[in-house]
Design a binder for these strands. Structure first.
Lengths: 114, 114
DNA sequence: CGTGTAAGGAATTCTGACACG
DNA sequence: CGTGTAAGGAATTCTGACACG
């Protein structure tokens, strides 16, 4: 699970992204300004995108076509991040609980202490 | 099997390839001249590489380090292509044979007719 | 709000060539 | 043979701004 370096490695220039997505460079830069995509920068400052970023842009295209505003798309993005954070946290908690259990034996988690 | 468009899509500029591989642009262009890698060109003529091309270059680096000459690397490449062609052909033949068999029933292939 | 465009500059890429060995 | 480099030009990308709506 995870890695897929081909998908996440930032190596595509804005020109290529424009070709692939059909978006103008202006649009792509604007979506970055609205914090919807996050390319990396080379030392000299040119933007580099990953295939994952390209997919993200495709998704944005669809939402824009549905009349969704950049602000709303951003909200949705933040919401998903929060959600993922919660999931990760609970996964981590579960693992820690498992470890403790392995060491100290059965210790059922008590939701309401005392 | 096959597809993996992320791996084969030609979207990486020579500068990025240089960064990833550590090769100079001069070297990368030279290996193309020697027909070891085959980038695409944009309308305006700039080279575009795929992750697969990058892997190919990594492989070339290793061979060069072992003192293999570009000519030999090329020979090896051609040899492999021929080999693949043969494999593909035999796979296709097998499929056709299977189809014929399904339609006309058991018809064992005779290597020496008559 | 989302996008086009002209502006000026900086960085990238290209080719053909000379150089060294 | 494999690679560095300077040369001149063309194409790319960047930013900040004005425009329209």
């Amino acid at each position: 699970m995870q890695d897929e370096s081909y998908k996440t490695k930032k190596v595509i220039s804005i020109g290529a992204v424009s070709e692939i997505t059909g978006l103008s460079e202006r649009q792509i830069r604007y979506y970055e300004e609205r914090k919807l995509v996050f390319p990396e920068r080379t030392k000299k400052g040119t933007r580099k995108y990953s295939f994952q970023d390209v997919e993200r842009l495709m998704d944005i295209i669809n939402q824009m076509e549905d009349g969704v505003q950049t602000f709303e798309i951003r909200q949705e993005l933040l919401r998903k991040e929060k959600e993922k954070e919660m999931t990760d946290r609970s996964v981590r908690d579960q693992m820690i609980r498992g470890q403790l259990n392995a060491v100290f034996g059965i210790a059922k988690p008590r939701r309401y202490p005392r």
